[in-house]
Design a protein around this nucleic acid. Sequence first.
RNA 1: GGCGACAUAGCCAAGUGGUAAGGCCGAGGUCUGCAAAACCUCUAUCCCCGGUCCGAUUCCGGGUGUCGCCUCCA
Length: 492
Amino acid sequence: MIYLLKVYNTMTRTKEEFKPVKEGEVSIYCCGVTPYNPPHIGNARPFVTWDVIRRYFAKRGYKVKYIQNFTDVDDKIIAAANREFSTWKEISERNIKSYFYSMDALNVRHADFYPKVSETMPEIISMIQKLVDKGFAYKLDNGDVYFSVEKDNEYGKLSGRKLDDMQAGARIEVDDRKNHPMDFALWKAAKSGEPSWESPWGAGRPGWHIECSAMSLKFLGEKFDFHGGGSDLIFPHHENEIAQSQCSIGDSHSFAQYWLHNGFITIDNEKMSKSAGNFFTVEDILKKYPGEVIRFFLLQTHYRSPLNFSEDAIKEAQTSLQRLKNSHDAINSVVSKIASDKIEFSSGENSSENIFAKSEEILKSFYVAMDDDFNTALAIGKMFDLAREINIYCNDFMGGKISITTDDSQKIVRVKEIFAEMSEIIGIFEREEKSAAGNSGLVEKLMNVIISIRADARAAKNWTVADKIRDELKKAGVTLEDTPQGVKWSIK
RNA sequence: GGCGACAUAGCCAAGUGGUAAGGCCGAGGUCUGCAAAACCUCUAUCCCCGGUCCGAUUCCGGGUGUCGCCUCCA
């Protein structure tokens, strides 16, 4: 298949054609979390986004290498440890566990590696040493080491800032031991009560920024394809990563080739952030909504657009997703009915022929949408288009309105596969129904008994009993639907 | 103060130089004991003012509004 994949590169502020560093391979570094808190829905957005991107590349036939770090040595973690009379290790491990719990619920595939700062000290220290040796960094008397932004004449190229412009609005207290107000710490000398590691500059720990450079270079080499995260990381985090990485390598075209940044999730149209306190953790939302719904909610908007989180919005996502789920179930049951060999094939023409051609077209347009900077919003729209076609076909089929040929039976399997292919990239409907296969048929048998009793009631036009059974089951989480093809039940 | 993004129907949200996907909600209809699901039909000239163009919602300029970054933050 010939295609052109375009991605919006923050570095150039334009959509560019994607050309991998290595033919047939894609290397991705996504900035992970600082595990001092359970992840909130805003944290989840980039991880779900990148999960779709890597699924997409994999589907396109690329060999994908995906790295995501944990910044487990950090001021906030240390602060939390002190507050709780605990250790940085305990705090970070607990929150990393929480991270995986949340992301697993959102059906986010695991990265190939999850490097941690605490496990990357040698690489971090040698990188700082390189910067000192080359004259890009300097040490203070107390043992701090700073990066000198003035030595990097390309500093500011990602965020589009000039050092002079930034000074004007700097409201922070300037540390006058630094050569330039924007110089940032590569290494922080140890203070009492803090974890520290030995280094050529004395005991201390890495500053923020250097760890991501060291970890990405360690796992992906000096030149790799993608680097991403939330757009609040553009400055200073990613700007600084670029500066220190390219200066240490000595090549202004090294490091990540494409920079992708997520828009924010807002609450009442204000940025959600841990520091502002207006956030919802994924764990909390999971108490009320399935992970699949949360995931779908995140993907219904393009990754670069802002996204407002609210109860109404997530409810709407749930309703919409159910619509797709109904079609997913419908096509699956049609296919299994055909496979069960209980239908008669005919050799005549059938009335729903065009679903086959249409579904191929829809699949193509789905890929076109994804090729355009991973436009999941548009791509999901295509799934709804296919859902409508499937519903029409399945209604006709189950209603006995169409006859199918043996040839059609192959084609309808293809329709099911197309829907499944799109679902897989978006990352929904992958979990097998626990009700159908898992429980050794007991629930199945019980349901048959109940439905049979209710059928008797209905036959006797005893609507009170029939409706009571349906209502009570609904309360218990079992939905009954009387369809022209018989009673269907599902567990919510 | 510097830099940037966005402004599309009741709501959410794609998109295009030639009068605008999809979803939710709502109205009517088909089906149905009722309900559900599903299907059909209906609901926008794209913030305002200029400019370029045969033609702009889409390009350029100005304005207004909202948000973000410049400090930890996905």
